[in-house]
Each structure stands twice: as structure tokens, then as C-alpha cells.
């Protein structure tokens, strides 16, 4: 177990250093949430006037949605790095060492989680400046961060598993583009749950993105901690299942390669 953690941290260090050497990537990652918050915040500010919308500040409503959307999209790309490693022989080199095989996946997931954590904090600070007060205080913030990290881990593991099975960037890009936005819009990320059509509501029950949105939003309001706990539990199951899927995909990759 100690060696597993050691391996994971060594590989995490590699991914983190590589990320820090991508100034354009960092800039875009930081600026993108700003654009989401300001554009969506301005565009839809009158939405709160619709009768039945259960918030009176759209920016306060939107902030957790943007946190979760950013966490989901950012992590969904983490399989790309894996494909890069496969194509350049880096994976072969890693596999020729006694490194824990699980650590290779775990480091990717952890790296995605770390990125999500930093991004989420930035979005929350920006949201606060724009007027999104977190009434539930420190527990609310923790609730949002936990749900963002859980959805990020899940999508990162899912992406890694798909990368190992498809082995091509093109395939992974197509899959992420195909599922990304629908999963976001089949949730209460941008629209009050009270106002979304019934069929969307039914689908959203099974949508991990919606679990995360629900957990994050209930954390902000601090009214319904049991909903936060329940959704975080679902997210944890999702993250564990996707991690299991990624490990399985890795085994298949090693067998067939």
C-alpha cells in the first residue's frame, strides 16, 4: 500500500510539472470559467423573474453549475495524456518497471482532481465577487469542492478507460463532444429544477452531472444537507465504478497489446 501511494505521488508529480509547463493551457483554464460566469450570468439574468424559479440571483444560482461543468469537461480530457503516453512509448517504459499498474490510473485521476480543486476555488472566488454569496459558509464551500472533485475523478477515470480501449485521440474527442454538452444540459446546471421539463427531469435522475449539480447547489443554500450527502454518495459510487472500469480497460490493454 505504501509503495502504491509512493508510485502514485511520483507519477502525480510528473503530470503536475508537465501541466505547469503549459502556460497557454493554464491561461485558458483560468479564463474559461470567467467567460462562463460573466456571459451566462449576463445573458440569463432575467431568468430568475420567471415565476417558480427558486432563486433570486442568477449568478448565485449559476456558480455551482459552472463549477460542476468545468470539473466535468476538464477531467473528461484526461485520457488524452494517456493516449499521448501510449503513442510515444512512455507507457511501455512505465510498464517495463515494477510500478503499481493501478498507480498509473490513480495518478491521472488525482491530477484531474487537483486541477478541479484549483479551478473550483477560482470560480467560487470570482462568483463571490460577482455577487454569489455562499450562505452556508465553510461547510457549503467544502460541499461544493467535494462534489466537484468526485465528478471530476469519475469523468477522469471514465476518460482514461475509454482512452485505453479506443487508443486514438480522434475517438476520444468524438465521444467527449458527443456526451459532454447533453449531459450538462440534461441537468439543473443552468435551469431551476422546478422549471425543467418532466422528461429531462427523469433522465437527470440517472445523470451523474446532475447529482453533482444538486449536491453543489444544496451545499450553497445549506437547506438540505441530506440531499448533499445522498448525491455525494451516488457520486462516490460513480467514481469508484469508473475507476474500476479504467483498471479493467488497462488490464485489457496490457493483455492485447
Amino acid at each position: 500500500m505504501y509503495i502504491f501511494i509512493f508510485d502514485t505521488l511520483q507519477l502525480l508529480k510528473r503530470h503536475t510539472l508537465a501541466t505547469l509547463r503549459l502556460p497557454i493551457w493554464i491561461a485558458v483554464t483560468l479564463i474559461q470559467p470567467v467567460i462562463w460566469l460573466t456571459i451566462f450570468g449576463q445573458l440569463f439574468q432575467k431568468v430568475v423573474e420567471i415565476p417558480g424559479f427558486d432563486s433570486n440571483s442568477y449568478i448565485a444560482f449559476l456558480t455551482p453549475g459552472v463549477v460542476i461543468m468545468t470539473a466535468m469537461f476538464g477531467s473528461a480530457w484526461s485520457g488524452m495524456g494517456l493516449i499521448y503516453d501510449l503513442n510515444l512509448g512512455v507507457m511501455d517504459r512505465l510498464l517495463s518497471t515494477p510500478v503499481y499498474r493501478g498507480a498509473i490510473i490513480a495518478a491521472r485521476v488525482l491530477h484531474a482532481s487537483l486541477t478541479v480543486l484549483v479551478q473550483s476555488i477560482i470560480i467560487l472566488v470570482l462568483g463571490y465577487i460577482l455577487g454569489a454569496k455562499i450562505e452556508s459558509g465553510i461547510f457549503g464551500i467544502l460541499g461544493i469542492l467535494v462534489s466537484a472533485i468526485l465528478i471530476g475523478s469519475g469523468f477522469s477515470a471514465l476518460s482514461s478507460g475509454l482512452a485505453l480501449l479506443t487508443k486514438r485521440e480522434e475517438n476520444l474527442i468524438a465521444i467527449i463532444n458527443f456526451f459532454g454538452l447533453p449531459l450538462t444540459f440534461l441537468s439543473a446546471a443552468f435551469m431551476s429544477e422546478a422549471l425543467i421539463p418532466n422528461w429531462v427531469k427523469i433522465i437527470s435522475i440517472f445523470n451523474p452531472v446532475n447529482w453533482a449539480v444538486s449536491a453543489a447547489r444544496n451545499s450553497i443554500s445549506g437547506d438540505n444537507w441530506s440531499a448533499v450527502t445522498f448525491n455525494c454518495f451516488l457520486l462516490l459510487v460513480f467514481a469508484l465504478l469508473t475507476y474500476f472500469f479504467a483498471t479493467l480497460a488497462f488490464k485489457i490493454y496490457q493483455k492485447t497489446h
Partner: peptide, 18 residues
């Protein structure tokens, strides 16, 4: 076997961004 052996592949295998 992995501890006993070193492997240098045909393709590069080094991390270009490190």
C-alpha cells in the same frame, strides 16, 4: 523479471515535457 531487466524501446519512451 522487471527488476532484473532494463528495457529500451524502439520508439522514444521518454517524457518530452520533463
Amino acid at each position: 523479471v522487471r527488476l532484473l531487466t532494463g528495457y529500451v524501446a524502439q520508439s522514444t519512451g521518454v517524457d518530452a515535457w520533463a
